[in-house]
Nucleic acid binder design. Structure first.
Length: 432
RNA sequence: GGAGAGAUGGCUGAGUGGUCGAAGGCGCGCGACUGGAAAUCGCGUGUACCCUCAAAAAAGGGUACCGAGGGUUCAAAUCCCUCUCUCUCCGCCA
């Protein structure tokens, strides 16, 4: 959420930012209209309340002195009726105003490339060359199904499409990746691990910006007001909602494993094969709560932390600066990490690292006190995948596949796999 | 799931219809005292929004906020209803 005063005082800045994002300026205009209406009602309403307060005092005084207050009480009855009806009007205006305000995206940082589509994202750097094969490489779903470690058919029988059973060393590989990533971030990069709830209530979803605008993307738990989390960013960032932190608490670095649940509404027909786009997937997420002055440095460091995962695993990737057209709703700036996927013949997103500045902090009311007696300020929040686990599994299967259909395990992962260095048809079920 | 108790400011803890943004204490800040400190004393110490004035800040005025939402009343921390959360006991359960 943007600062309403900022919108009111600099509507042109906001308008420009919406145009850069290729978004409609309808909500902005509606905001300006409602904002003015609200203040009009409020001014008048507060005058009436002031009258009621002072006259109530007068009534109390008269009664104490044993005098008759009947006339004033009668007057105030009318005033109170007026107040009640104006409050109803105000409530209506504020309800819509809030909805409109919550639907305006963050303002892109000046360094964000301006673009018309995701084509305009700018490659920042590459690490390693795309994997070369001296045989015809297979897609990970074929490799996995041949080895018996990926089982999409059973998942669609038990649940539905876009789910998977991992079996044997496939399951082991997924768990090993989770543990590897958590270990790397906690021991090398200074993050504190948390294991969050996988469901949150509506306010938390609003706090991090998934609601109210994107309700159709989320899974709601029937009979409750809970949502399955689309990312651990939601519970972990909201840990600090409605709170004033101490300056000495900052920066906060958290890393969390969670399953993530996404309805993938609007993605019908895309990435229907394999692990790339599932309704449920595993992710290791990094979250930072920092002082505003440091947030852009912290973003660069966070990207490096995610890159370290891929470098240590030896997966070719590139870093992309996301353009205004492709920037997420809450982000002021975002980098994607994209891994090389032989089956796609291109780079595929495996991590997004965003600086949300105070956009989420404002929604979730997360502040810190810069010093004794100083006014509390909004913190800046960052989040980044460190990294998506299912896609990493897919990337390992594809980039480490061998001509005989077996898959090598990256060296750094072997300690987390009980020393196993290769998945073959013979050992794939993990029996000894 | 059943029974009970509770939710008040940074913390603690009073307050059962009007003089309550809210006693007292603690903490914190400023000042006095002191060579310096402790102790003591004095003063101060929430947030959001609106208006005035302004480039902005500050200042002044106002409104709201005692878990959340609604109701009664001229007037609600206080009375009524609904909900949420916490604690205790019982039941169930990985």
């Amino acid at each position: 959420m943007l600062d309403p005063k900022r919108i009111r005082n600099n509507p042109d800045v906001i308008r420009e930012s919406l145009i850069k994002r290729n978004e409609s300026t309808e909500n902005l205009d509606r905001f300006l209209e409602l904002d003015e209406k609200r203040r009009g009602i409020l001014t008048e309403l507060e005058k009436l309340k002031n009258l009621r307060n002072s006259e109530s005092e007068e009534i109390a005084r008269l009664k104490k002195e044993g005098k008759d207050a009947g006339v004033k009480i009668e007057e105030m009855r009318e005033v109170s009726d007026k107040i009640k009806s104006m409050e109803a009007d105000l409530g209506e205006v504020e309800g819509e105003l809030n909805l409109v305000l919550m639907s305006i995206p963050n303002v892109p940082h000046s360094s964000v490339p301006v673009g018309k589509s995701d084509e305009d994202n700018v490659e920042v750097r590459r690490w390693a060359d795309p994997t070369k094969f001296n045989f015809e490489p297979k897609a990970h779903w074929d490799i996995g199904e041949n080895l018996g470690i990926l089982d999409f058919a059973t998942a669609s029988k038990v649940t539905g499409s876009r789910f998977v059973f991992l079996r044997g060393l496939g399951a082991r590989l997924e768990m090993a990746l989770i543990n590897f990533m958590l270990t790397l971030h906690t021991t090398k990069h200074g993050y504190v691990e948390v294991f969050p709830p996988f469901m949150v209530h509506r306010h938390s979803m609003e706090g991090t910006g998934q609601l109210p605008k994107f309700e159709e993307d989320a899974f709601k738990v029937a009979g409750t007001d809970y949502f399955l989390i689309p990312t651990a960013e939601v519970p972990v960032t909201n840990m600090y909602r409605e709170q004033i932190l101490d300056k000495s608490d900052l920066p906060i670095y958290h890393v969390a494993y969670s399953a993530c649940f996404r309805s993938e509404a609007g993605s019908a027909g895309r990435d229907t094969r394999g692990l790339i786009r599932q309704h449920q997937f595993n992710k290791v997420e990094m979250v930072k709560i920092v002082e505003p002055e440091t947030s852009y440095d912290e973003l660069e460091k966070m990207v490096n932390d995610a890159e370290d995962v891929l470098q240590t695993l030896g997966i070719p990737y590139r870093v992309v600066a996301i353009s205004t057209a492709d920037l997420g709703f809450t982000a002021a700036k975002k980098y994607d990490l994209e891994i090389w996927m032989p089956s796609y013949g291109r780079y595929v997103e495996i991590s997004s690292c965003s600086n949300c500045e105070d956009f989420q902090a404002r929604r979730a009311d997360m502040k810190y006190r810069p010093g004794q007696g100083e006014k509390a300020r909004y913190v800046h929040t960052l989040n980044g995948s460190g990294v998506a686990v299912g896609r990493t599994t897919a990337a390992i299967l594809e980039n480490y596949q061998q001509p005989d259909g077996s898959v090598l395990i990256p060296e750094a992962l072997r300690p987390f796999m009980g020393g196993i260095d290769r998945i073959t048809k013979g050992n794939a079920m993990g029996r000894r």
